[in-house]
């Protein structure tokens, strides 16, 4: 029999909208010396300077709709995707918008919150903030939350490459962290996503998220990366976060600049999907659909 673990409840001394409003103000000030993600650029985004994500202080979005493609326990979710990202995954499924923080439309937190509330009234179970990567637009993300009902179930869909500073600002805000663990070693992260020191940063974020909210870890299987990426991710999760739910996704398709890498020019084979499932079984991971 499978017993569901009790849901983690977040303890707050202030109401979430008030807390988010206060944190949004602090986050905006911090853009003057931006260290929101692990790239730690230290640029003044308020003055128009840009760091590795190329984002200014203006947040834009490229998608806001109710979807059913995420984890079954989270759907239907009203998904809001902010433009721009701090990683450079060549295989990014939304590369055009994720690599370009100027893509899409200007983000009005109050307006999109109205649409989110309508979606909730219409039966959406959760509201999900994603990107690109929402961490690089933390002020706008927090402002968005300040307009949402205090009891809405909020999901932070992240690449888990944020900084300790960003984590502090997010503490007590989102009910669920839906975090990617994409690469099992730094060489693959550097080659495919130009992200140094990837594994340490993601592990730190996952351990923190598990202590502060509900955590679901996602791993997108990449063709040719079952042993070098999925196996070490699975092994680490089994040892360090054995009760955390894991969603192993096999729907990779060769989007954006994936063809720069020979092994990413095709989809994941049935055999690789089976092998990945065997690895999950070997480590006893609690996979979810």
């Amino acid at each position: 029999m499978i017993c569901n673990a009790p849901e983690k409840k977040i303890a707050r001394t202030q109401s979430r909208p008030a807390l988010a409003r206060e944190r949004a103000r602090i986050a905006r000030e911090l853009l003057a010396d931006c260290r929101l993600c692990a790239h730690d650029c230290g640029v003044n985004r308020l003055a128009g300077e840009t760091g590795l994500c190329h984002a200014t202080a203006e947040a834009r979005f490229f998608l806001a709709q109710t979807e059913v493609s995420d984890e079954l326990e989270l759907i239907p979710t009203f998904a809001v995707a902010l433009s721009g990202c701090d990683m450079r995954c060549d295989f990014c499924i939304t590369g055009k918008e994720s690599w370009n923080p100027r893509a899409g439309l200007g983000f009005s937190a109050a307006e999109i919150a109205e649409r989110a509330k309508a979606a909730l009234a219409d039966g959406a179970k959760t509201i999900m903030l994603l990107g690109g990567e929402p961490t690089i637009h933390l002020p706008a993300a927090l402002e968005f939350v300040s307009h949402l009902p205090a009891d809405a179930k909020l999901v932070w869909k992240t690449n888990a490459h944020g900084s300790a500073q960003a984590r502090e600002l997010l503490d007590g805000i989102f009910d669920v962290w839906l975090a990617d663990f994409k690469f099992g070693n730094n060489a693959c992260a550097q080659r495919l996503a130009k992200t140094p020191d990837y594994v340490r940063v993601v592990r730190d974020n996952l351990l923190w998220a598990n202590g502060h909210s509900e955590l679901i870890v996602r791993h997108l299987l990449l063709p040719g990366h079952v042993e070098c990426c999925w196996r070490p991710v699975a092994a680490w999760l089994a040892e360090n976060l054995p009760d955390v739910k894991v969603n192993l996704r096999s729907g990779f398709w060769p989007a954006w600049q994936a063809s720069r890498h020979a092994e990413l020019r095709h989809t994941v084979s049935v055999l690789e999907t089976q092998r990945a499932g065997d690895i999950a079984d070997e480590f006893g991971l609690p996979l979810i659909p």
Partner: peptide, 12 residues
């Protein structure tokens, strides 16, 4: 096989 991104309920 059909791979899907941003699946909405009507398309599902």
């Amino acid at each position: 096989r059909i791979l899907v991104q941003n699946l909405t309920q009507p398309m599902a």
